[in-house]
Amino acid sequence: MTDVTTPHTKSFRMPSMSVLGPIIALIVLLVIGALMNSNFLSAANITNVLARSAFIGIIAVGMTFVITAGGLDLSVGSMAAFIAGLMILVMNAALPSLGVGVPIILLGMFTAIVAGLLAGLLNGFLITALGIEAFIVTLGSMGIYRSLVTWLADGGTLSLDFGLRSFYRPVYFDGILGVSWPIIVFALVVVIGEIIMSRTVYGRHCAATGSNEHVAHYSNVNVNRTRLISYAALGILVGIATIMYVPRLGSASASTGVLWELEAIAAVIIGGTVLKGGFGRVWGTVIGVLILSLIGNILNLTDFVSPYLNGAIQGIIIILAVILQRERKTAL
């Protein structure tokens, strides 16, 4: 009642800790790394860190949308392993008829993307159309894909044909102007993801759905479709990540992609996206991914702290990130 109308006040506001926190953490890590090892800032090391981050990073961008829309997907790690296995089987099987060449690589890529799309749609369908909780559905599909890849590999390892492997290798190891393909693809996915999240109707609908699905429904937002699309998009991104991953090792086994889902979710949360949905930012997720891989990289390069403590330090960072998020809520 004592409100005063101030039609146009665009006052400058200090960015909150939830915005600055991840950035500061990243800078601190860079400084620590540079001080401890002179090789840390070398082009080779940076490229290595970025390329290794790309798989989790591509998946984490998709995960950002799923979580922002109020969902969760635990199955992405197993899904990646399954898609990798499937891709290798398909390519090996097509080798006699297609031979080593671009067509067979395209066939493999097509397989990965279609498999990812279908797997994502299946998760999304069970969650939206049947109304089962995302945690349950994806916990189930996580087990299913993990078991399927183990079965496909008969408990061992599925290997890409040797000739094919050397032909496919450049997709991971080569690039343009010294920037390797995984980094380029990761960057593209991030830019597109950030634009969709912050600038498009779909991004706004994701945030509204995760923020309060009743409000979204009453605002004529198609809540189920919004969620379904987020799972399908995540599936496609898992497929893309797998396309980048397979040429690196040329094989898939029961241990491929283990714990990727947790790393991806952790990166999303560290980046400032709210776990219960309603607010997400893709650039934050990128910082989250970089923080997680830098910790591992620094521990490997220095002998100050045992690399075996990698998980513990990542865990501390995740918990700190959530505490920062809570501060944002009470401060505003």
Binding site: A208, N212, V215, F279
Partner: peptide, 8 residues
């Protein structure tokens, strides 16, 4: 609960 996103 149905009309407005209170956090926004």
């Amino acid at each position: 609960l149905r009309g407005l996103l209170l956090e926004r």
